[in-house]
Design a protein around this nucleic acid. Structure first.
Length: 690
DNA sequence: TGTGAAGGGT
């Protein structure tokens, strides 16, 4: 007889044991209580053959009035309170009426609570984010004889603050007649951790006025807030207070100081504080490594990674996450692979926290298959993991696959968020899937996700690229908020694609009103006029750019050869092997012309003669990077190039012919997506570049 | 029985 069936057999003791029947707590008569003792319980145990676990995890001193065993007919489980100890797993156990069993037992006089029990229950709610249960415990606590206990009140503030209920936390905080330094620290931390640094910093002087002395807990939260707010003067003042109160050398405060100066991009101060810190830990190292990663300084991040190990600190998942992130943004696949191997060797598990950045790194470095492999190895992919893989599919031009994976994600039970829908809409836009895009845009409401401006931008892009310029315009006018420059920019891009000069000029005017200094829209408008032969209008745009000081971002391309990243600009004269590179491209150019390549000079932004335009085209940074890669990389290997702006139409065409000529895959990452050139065609289906 | 610092997805 197993224990589950045995519970049913245990119904007879209902009259003497408190139990739930038809969602009601059945309480035995008080005289029966005296007869309930360990012996009776033991005999019931032997009757039902239920090996109740006595592995108690907590050490609460809460006193049961009598030894009881509560049997539930609905949940078929035994809730054991025969000891003076309550099991941790039972702290938040539900009763059939939706309440908490522990609270029911207290209400019916079977358990005499102590302050520690409330504290344990509140902390369990905080840990699991169970705010509904937390509110029940809070109410119960307020009606108990312990309601004036400051320590528990502090636990309540902390619980609300940690569970994203800042208003509730503040309400409790404001109503507390007596507050100590922990109370103030709890609410300051709440604001600091919930992206409200202003409020956190405003409370600090109020706390000081009450003569409460801040401690290392207070300072670490205040420094985090100061770093997020970006007011350097404020941060320096908090730093001063840390020194005054003698906490600057505390490892938590010190690490927060390092991070704060990193946020201000004051790296020399960050390094100074770090070097002064006698008591360092992994977080101190990770703060610096993360900062260099954010600044795309992969070499510095990597150097610190090596140094931390020389100083006997073990890299953590934060360390690896930062390193993969910097490899992703610089597209350093070889370096990323090396760090991945290091991580595996160190025994670090592939949890979602690291796996997500690893998926992103492989996807952004153009190694799509590795991204899929890592994703498939994740034991518990979360919404970010799914978003990363959806982005990878979308950016690599696999629109239909993106949508298939999205459906799979829904079936798995992962709740999509606004980023998920942005990935899905981007996939539709990149893949030209107009109807699907409209369908998924409407679907957002089913998930209670309000479309943000980025979703509208993608929809305008989708409609515009599909040639529905009027629909896109009407879509913009019906937006629930004012369209920003990006929305009009998307329409402008579509006008360039479909050569609609009138609407393009209108959209460009709107963009210029909102963001006059972005070079992109000016260039798009120039291109619209130039490709329509309206050279006067085009030169006016150029003149206007000069007058207001808008500069075109210089185009750069990068290619990684043997762990070294080589950068090229248009008409590059700085590379040590420039002569060989130009010669190589000339040779390639001649050979691809033989198989059908015709230079497309309409992409050159200069009012010059045809011959000069072609010469300009041949010096584009991605062509030089490609020639260099062909010279240096072994035949047959994949060539991966990264570019800081969108690939021009002529380079796109040339790359297709080169992939055919050399019989190898070329992966080009530009600002918008990946282009996989293979056998004379591109994965974007020529949909994107024009 | 209470309070803290570091990462990721368009």
């Amino acid at each position: 007889m197993n224990s589950r069936r045995a519970i049913y057999l245990a119904h007879p003791p209902v009259s003497i044991f408190p139990t739930y029947y038809m969602n009601k707590l059945i309480v035995p008569f008080s005289e029966n209580l005296t007869s309930i003792n360990g012996g009776v319980v033991s005999s019931v145990r032997s009757l039902i053959q239920n090996p109740i676990s006595l592995r108690f995890l907590s050490t609460s001193t809460a006193t049961p009035i009598a030894s009881t065993s509560v049997l539930s007919s609905s949940s078929e489980e035994v809730f054991d309170m025969t000891s003076h100890i309550i099991q941790e797993k039972d702290l938040l156990r539900k009763s059939p009426n939706g309440g908490l069993r522990v609270l029911d037992l207290i209400d019916h006089g079977f358990l005499e609570p102590d302050a520690k029990l409330y504290s344990q229950m509140l902390n369990k709610c905080t840990q699991l984010g169970k705010i509904k249960e937390g509110k029940m415990v809070h109410t119960h606590f307020m009606n108990s004889k312990f309601s004036h206990y400051l320590v528990i009140q502090n636990t309540v503030v902390n619980m609300y603050a940690k569970c994203d209920c800042l208003d509730d936390a503040r309400e409790v905080f404001d109503k507390m007649p007596v507050k100590d330094m922990v109370t103030w620290t709890a609410i300051i931390t709440g604001y600091s951790q919930n992206d409200k640094p202003e409020e956190a910093l405003l409370l600090f002087p109020q706390m000081l006025r009450l003569n409460l002395k801040p401690n290392h807990f207070t300072f670490s939260s205040l420094l985090k807030a100061a770093g997020a707010r970006g007011n350097e003067r404020e941060g320096e003042q908090i730093h001063g207070y840390c020194l005054k109160y003698g906490y600057a050398s505390n490892v938590y405060v010190g690490s927060a100081l390092v991070d704060m100066y990193c946020r201000y991009e004051r790296m020399s101060e960050a390094h100074f504080v770090f070097n002064q810190l006698e008591d360092k830990n992994e977080v101190s190292w990770n703060s610096l490594i993360a900062a260099h990663s954010r600044k795309n300084e992969g070499d510095k991040a990597l150097l610190l990674f090596q140094k931390m190990q020389m100083d006997n600190y073990n890299p953590t998942h934060f360390t690896y996450s930062s390193l993969f992130s910097v490899c992703a943004s610089t597209g350093s696949l070889e370096q990323g692979k090396w760090i991945h191997a290091h991580m595996v060797k160190s025994g670090q598990k592939l949890i979602a926290f690291i796996g997500n950045t690893l998926v992103d790194m492989y996807a952004k470095s153009g190694s799509f298959d590795d991204a899929i492999k890592v994703f498939n190895r994740l034991t518990k992919p979360d919404v970010v993991s799914w978003n990363s893989i959806l982005t990878a599919y979308a950016q690599h031009g696999l629109g239909v696959k993106t949508l298939q994976h999205f459906e799979k994600m829904i079936k798995t039970g992962i709740q999509p968020n606004s980023v998920t829908f942005l990935c899905v809409l981007t996939a539709c836009s990149h893949g030209g899937l107009l109807e699907k895009g409209e369908f998924y845009f409407k679907m957002m409401k089913e998930y209670n996700i309000e479309p943000e401006v980025s979703h509208y931008v993608t929809m305008v892009d989708l409609l515009g690229r599909a040639g529905k310029l009027d629909v896109a315009l009407s879509f913009i006018t019906k937006m629930p908020f004012e369209p920003n420059a990006a929305v009009w920019g998307a329409l402008l891009g579509a006008c360039r694609m479909h050569k609609n000069m009138e609407l393009g000029a209108y959209a460009a005017e709107r963009v210029f009103e909102l963001d006059p200094f972005d070079s992109g829209p000016h260039i798009l408008l120039y291109n619209i006029y130039a490709s329509g032969g309206k050279w006067n209008e085009a030169s006016k745009v150029r003149k206007c750019m000069k007058e207001i000081g808008v500069k075109k971002e210089p185009a750069c391309s990068w290619v990684e050869i043997e762990n070294c990243v080589h950068m090229f600009v248009a008409n590059d004269q700085t590379h040590p092997e420039k002569n060989k590179i130009y010669k190589k491209w000339e040779e390639i150019s001649e050979r691809i012309k033989e198989i059908g390549y015709v230079p497309d000079t309409s992409h050159v932004l200069l009012f010059v003669d045809e011959q000069e335009r072609e010469a300009k085209l041949q010096c584009h940074s991605e062509k030089l990077a490609l020639a260099f890669a062909i010279m240096k990389l072994p035949p047959g290997s994949t060539i991966r190039i990264k570019k800081n702006i969108r690939v021009c139409g002529d380079c796109h065409s040339a790359f297709k012919f080169v992939s055919l000529l050399v019989g190898r895959e070329i992966v080009l990452r530009d600002t918008n997506r990946f282009h996989h050139f293979n056998g004379g065609s591109c994965s974007c289906g020529d949909y994107w570049y024009c």
